[in-house]
Design a protein around this nucleic acid. Structure first.
Lengths: 115, 115
DNA sequence: TTATATCCCTAAGATTACAAGGGATATCCC
DNA sequence: GGGATATCCCTTGTAATCTTAGGGATATAA
């Protein structure tokens, strides 16, 4: 679970979607910028690999949670910008609730004295 | 991610081990009792399916984190009792730290205003 | 005798992350 | 000019681990 070399954690399968949706909730970003944003926000704890990122963005697009559009970055490069849709916002809210419930449930088990 | 019918959550792949180790840290239990303990502690939020539970216990056993032994339950039934080993305690401590770092990293992304 | 709870287990299927590639361009520095 | 680095896109293969869906057996209560 823990990667030894750097201090980065493996992503738990199922949490990437909400990370992406949340990151896009501040405004459209291209894949590379999304990855950078998450890496910086978590102080390198989360590094979103490209092999996870792009398939995940495709999944979200297919589900109608994000929309993609080609554009040009600040640095003058072609890039695909992803934008959160209305359905994406709804899913984000749901995902946040689910995550918080998950953390609460974990806390109940991991707290001492539940048997 | 969310199962609609009941209020139970799908387990994120990778969190089951620490749940099991923690549950066993209070003393030896057999599989069925472990499952029941977690279900009750989380107020039904987590239901550990048998198809996940037994393979997970085998993995932990193979890694030397738990030891198994046949015994008899309070109700007079044969059951395999799992006991946390020293290595299991160490792994539990490590798993707890990892989980807390994970939650903290998630929180930094999911909090408003990180871009 | 039927249902429910208690106990064990496996096999197939799906999902989803990582690893490891490939490709292209801009910019900085020597 | 040339090389390294950062910026951008993507796919394929692999591994891990969960859910679903079974199978089997016994005790007890209705």
């Amino acid at each position: 679970m823990l990667r030894v070399g750097d201090g980065s954690l493996e992503l738990l399968k199922g949490t990437l979607d909400v990370l992406l949706l949340k990151t896009l909730s501040h405004g459209p970003l291209h894949g590379y910028a999304i990855s950078r944003s998450i890496r910086r926000a978590t102080d390198e704890a989360f590094t979103v690999e490209e092999g996870a990122l792009y398939p995940a963005l495709r999944r979200l697009e297919k589900r109608g949670l994000v929309e993609a559009e080609w554009g040009v970055t600040d640095t003058g490069r072609e890039a695909r910008f992803y934008r959160l849709t209305g359905a994406g916002e709804t899913e984000l809210a749901s995902g946040l609730r689910t995550w918080h419930r998950y953390v609460a449930a974990m806390a109940r088990v991991l707290a001492d004295g539940h048997p």
